[in-house]
Amino acid sequence: MTKQEALVDFCLQIGDTSLIHGQRLAEWCGHAPILEEDIALTNISLDLIGQARMILTYAGQTENKHRDEDKLSFHRDAWDFRNVLIAELPNGDFAFTMGKIFLLGFYMKNLFTVLSNSKDPSLKAFAEKSLKEVIYHCRHAADWVIRLGDGTIESKERMQKALNELALYTDDLFEVSESEKILVQEKLIPSLADLKTNWSHDIAAVITQATLKLPQANNALRLGGKAGLHTEHLGHILSDMQFLQRAYPDAKW
């Protein structure tokens, strides 16, 4: 993998994660428990789609194969996607969705903090802009994790169950991809070695405040998102998201 290929691959990891996470959250539109939360979830979704647009545009320019952000989003198949697995999981109940935003949000917060010091000006600009957005996503989701965890018997049970199920997928966030290795070696991005420790510290503080137990995965861990090895759920979300552009290529509003 050349340095240029590594940069494209790394941008796809980030862009695909934001894109698929955003597309999933958009499924809540019109279905959230209260109007205010409906708007909050779709706001988060729009932030994520904006991030995907910015970084996928850059991936396309770096790749230099005439693929813009739309081409990359709508004309690739599941095995070409580099998103982390949590992003593609179905929304489940409200606690599960909040668990996803919470765990992924703090991952993105720590990742973008590191990338804010990237030597690549486009990555740096992307990270600085997106960091402000994900800090808010973390605050919103952490607020709900605490509210549900330290809430009623049922809300606590559901929040704990969500975190336990999601624990199967959190190691996938920190699996070091080949492109990450190359970009760190080439000093284009700072070391990602402390990412997991910092993330664990962040989420533990919230989980403790929520009077919940730190989740322990009790099954084989699922890995491989960054290498294109996805769960069955990605194909379904892509068929939904890509249908129009596949059926009517280059259709415009």
Binding site: I34, L35, E36, E37, I39, A40, N43, Y136, R139, H140, D143, R147
Partner: peptide, 20 residues
């Protein structure tokens, strides 16, 4: 106006509904 169960939720909801 909006609905929320406490002040922190009210503030976050206000941000999303009226200041986005």
């Amino acid at each position: 106006s909006l609905r929320a169960s406490d002040n922190e939720m009210a503030l976050l909801n206000a941000r999303d509904v009226y200041a986005r």
